[in-house]
Design a protein around this nucleic acid. Structure first.
Lengths: 361, 361
DNA sequence: ATGAAAGCGCTAACAG
DNA sequence: CTGTTAGCGCTTTCAT
């Protein structure tokens, strides 16, 4: 790498212009503070003072140093700085998949908080794989991020204990951590689902289906629990064929929906457990003649423009991220807070699909 | 920070259990290779060998070192490693806004390529602010990322010249760089827009509006150019009132759409310049009685389920990211490639809204 | 106001 | 197979 540049340096020995001469080192031949100091005719520490805007440098010296910096194209090496200072001014965010419209806004919100605290955000996708989650988290710890926001894929986070003990601030979001005591910021998944299902019951539905994510995911479990609670509150029995938990792949969701919509005692309404599921269920229902009611967990874009509009239990992804990040920096700012569980409320948004009355089979 | 832990260390002097004793240092008191070496009764370099899975260590020694590592909760400090090795095994991605559904998949695609190369991805949002873009890029350079994928917000990237000369691999995506010669991966914005507008013309439309992003954004300019080319190809004049470039805020887009839909010579079709614009235009059209045709640049989720379905010129965000990242690692793997411009084709997807015939005013 | 020396934790280069 | 030494580029400490 960079051979071309090096060759230039060697051939045209006096090309002090674009590729100013300098000692050979790694990083593709970058000037260091030492180089700047030599060029400006000052001590190393003086350069450091200028670069970090520390006091105690005459205007004249400062100017000479700045000139040398510009001429050489110097840029401070933060790796060295971090090694000395012990703080990286960066935090990590491990989530499931940045391509999911739920996580984009969450990540952006965390980034904004980090930015306000002068920190950079490094985020990684676990792809819902516990091993990959751990791998990512530990890689971030090796880079000595100051703090960590984690949307857990796995259920056991004991591997984080030494890191937390060593001072890595940690907050879990969206799902609680497993086997470890730590801050966690959640939506009220149970209450939200319960309310959504109760809404369907209030419309007169008695046979209601639930299609959700895999049962090893906390939110899926909480939401199905909310569904069962609402049914029980209303004195309604739940047929096993009405409940389906599993991967959110369109094929599986489609099959699950079609199964509960046919045969004896078909459901007249469906509660879908997250945005991915909702999208597929909408497609299935659009193909059918008899109207079926639908309430989905998570809002979806353009949900208001479909016919009928999609009634949803909405959670605020950005607020989730913001709250977690705020909490993280509270920890980083030295507050010795006992681990806390923060729960954000959800909101039922009626748009039509959830207000469809039951139709006789 | 970490006072609690420290106090534990000092009080219970022999708590060799969870918080094993060790020398005081920064990073919230983390053990170093030296500590591990001392505990295992071996030399520092042997620990390094074990940690990096280098050959030349007996099974027995390795076991002892591993035990010490586990007992102390040692984790290699990558800052020090980077300082020594000169490579950070990380790349940076600067984009506009991670919360935009266009950039999520792009970022995820870059991440996957990085991961395949053993690198971590750090991404930052410029919020379409040139200053913030530069700030972010330079922060990433200070952290010595090996490479940079940039979706430019600004139009002048000369500030990157010293960095690139110093060996930071760089690829621009979605928009070309300004005043600097570098790799760039683009969609065929001109051709895509031209094709989309030609499609509307083929349906019989003669008065077609264009609503796009701000004219300082390259893609916006290219797409409006494509629009004008298609109109000219068909020998159609373009009324100034039919073309609107500006912020993608719903309010502005709504006003623009309503303006060109009313008054004398109202448009019978609209070409919307990106996903944000499309969403708002859909809302405006949904409120109107007379059907108006619509083709949008960028695909949008659930666009097929709306009535009518939304006809779009689709570009593949993930493919854009993948191509750019591949190119970046090609550079990093030492290929001395001359800067190239790679253009990806777009695809017209007919779903109904673009096939609406013109209606008489 | 300025600088020299020490050292952060690690790896490269060389001994043994 | 194993250990010792030097030094990556910076900040800290302490002289001057």
């Amino acid at each position: 790498m960079l051979d071309a540049t090096r060759r230039d340096d060697r051939t045209g020995q006096r090309t002090v212009d674009r590729t100013a001469r300098r000692t050979e080192n790694r990083y593709g031949n970058r000037p260091t503070m030492k180089d700047v100091a030599a060029r400006a005719g000052v001590g190393l520490k003086t350069v450091s003072r200028v670069v970090n805007a520390e006091p105690g440098v005459t205007e004249d010296t400062e100017r000479r140093v700045q000139e040398a910096i510009a001429a050489l194209g110097f840029r401070r090496n933060d790796s060295a700085r971090v090694l000395r200072k012990g703080r990286t001014a960066s935090i990590g965010l491990v989530l499931e998949d940045l391509a999911d419209p739920f996580y984009g806004p969450l990540s952006r919100a965390v980034e904004e908080v980090a930015r306000a605290h002068g920190a950079l955000l490094i985020n990684g996708s676990s792809a819902e794989d516990p091993e990959r989650e751990q791998e990512l988290v530990l890689a971030l710890c090796a880079r000595r991020v100051d703090g960590l926001v984690v949307i857990p894929a796995g259920v056991d986070h004991q591997y984080l204990e030494p890191e937390i003990a060593a001072g890595v601030a940690t907050v879990f979001v969206d799902r609680p951590a497993g086997k470890i005591d730590a801050d966690v910021v959640l939506s009220d998944n149970f209450g939200g689902a319960r309310g959504g299902v109760a809404h369907l019951i209030a419309q007169g539905h008695r046979r209601i289906g639930f299609i959700g994510d895999q049962p090893r995911i906390h939110t899926a479990v909480e939401r199905v629990r909310g569904y069962r609670a609402a049914m029980e509150d209303a004195g309604l029995a739940v047929d096993d064929r009405w409940v389906s938990l599993g991967a959110t792949e369109p094929e599986r969701v489609r099959r699950a929906a079609e199964d509960m919509l046919t045969g004896p005692d078909p459901v007249t309404a469906i509660f879908s457990g997250n945005n991915r599921v909702t999208v597929t269920v909408i497609r299935v229902l659009a193909e059918r003649e008899r109207p079926v009611a639908l309430v989905g967990f998570d809002d979806i874009e353009l949900g208001d423009l479909l016919k009928p509009g999609v009634t949803v239990v909405s959670q605020d992804a950005a607020q989730l991220g913001r709250t977690a990040a705020d909490r993280l920096f509270l920890q980083l700012d030295g507050a010795a807070l006992p681990p806390e569980r923060i729960e954000l409320t959800t909101r039922l948004i009626q748009r039509g699909s959830g207000e469809i009355p039951p139709s006789s089979p």
